[in-house]
């Protein structure tokens, strides 16, 4: 007896076929966009308007509604990328490879946004754009890991080979991320002791927490949308000689 129920298995089996995936995601896109916009509107309204001003940080704390979800996404997407890469490596599913590489640039963007918003927040709060804080530093190294993945993918001409290389690199990165994270944390505490960033985590008020979670959910949907768009484009490029693409293009041009 299989662990996965039959309908689910069939769904994944069909999703691995490029024409089906292409058509299905096209139908899915308006729904995803709708949910994303609703969550985004709710999160922004709650975060920028309903949530009270912080008694210490004033209004500038509101950047967390962008910063914190992006930081969460940066790690989450790396995990998705590595998992998709592993699936592609083991079962040779073309779509898993495409999902892995399409995730890389979205993840890199989120990492970059987290760094930039963090530094924008740091200037008024800590009085400096950048501190060699443990979390900042490991986020920066995460960005380099993403850039390595993207660079490697672009450097290899044959895209199937490139996907394999990227998957191996992403998996090596997954083993290394905790090691890097903890070593950077230790390095920081050894060098300068607890800094301003190590403020005791105040229990966040529910009026601030709900918009944050809404924004986090909205970012998840945004990631899926952006990743699928890239994946569809990548799929068309790779399958440009396949029959279903030719048929679709001729049907659309008529």
């Amino acid at each position: 007896m299989s662990l996965i129920p039959d309908p689910v298995g069939r769904f994944f089996h069909r999703m691995a076929s490029p024409p089906y995936f292409y058509a299905f995601t096209e139908k899915l896109m308006p729904w995803l966009t709708g949910i994303f916009l609703i969550l985004l509107a709710g999160g922004l309204y709650g975060g920028l308007y309903l949530a009270p001003t912080d008694y210490q940080q004033g209004d500038s704390y509101r950047i967390i509604y962008i910063h914190v979800p992006s930081a969460w996404m940066s790690l989450f997407i790396y995990m998705v990328m590595a998992a998709a890469g592993a699936i592609g490596l083991v079962w040779r599913i073309k779509l898993a490879e495409i999902v892995a590489i399409s995730s890389a640039s979205v993840g890199a963007s989120f990492t970059f946004i987290a760094l930039v918003t963090g530094s924008l927040w740091g200037k008024p709060m800590w009085g400096t754009w950048w501190v060699w804080d443990a979390r900042l530093t490991s986020e920066l190294i995460l960005l380099f890991l993403y850039l390595g993945v993207i660079g490697l993918y672009n450097a290899i001409d044959d895209k199937r080979t490139a996907s394999k290389a990227v998957a191996i690199l992403a998996l090596v990165g997954v083993v290394n991320i905790p090691i890097i994270h903890y070593s950077v944390e230790w390095w920081n505490t050894l060098h300068q002791g607890p800094t301003v960033t190590k403020m005791d985590k105040p229990s966040i008020h529910v009026s601030m927490l709900v918009p944050l979670l809404l924004m986090a959910a909205a970012f998840k949907f945004y990631y899926v949308i952006a990743m699928l768009q890239r994946a569809r484009l990548e799929l068309l490029q790779r399958e440009r000689t396949a029959n279903w693409v030719k048929k679709m293009v001729t049907e659309q041009s008529q």
């Binding site: 380099f144 890991l145 390595g148 660079g151 450097a155 290899i156 690199l169 090596v172 890097i180």
Partner: peptide
């Protein structure tokens, strides 16, 4: 091993390897 097949692998190699050397 990842870059040996590339003609200009030197720069990309450093980008791949240096972050992993941090610890």
């Amino acid at each position: 091993a990842l870059t040996v097949g590339l003609r200009r692998g030197g720069m990309i190699l450093s980008l791949l390897v240096l972050p992993l050397y941090v610890p």
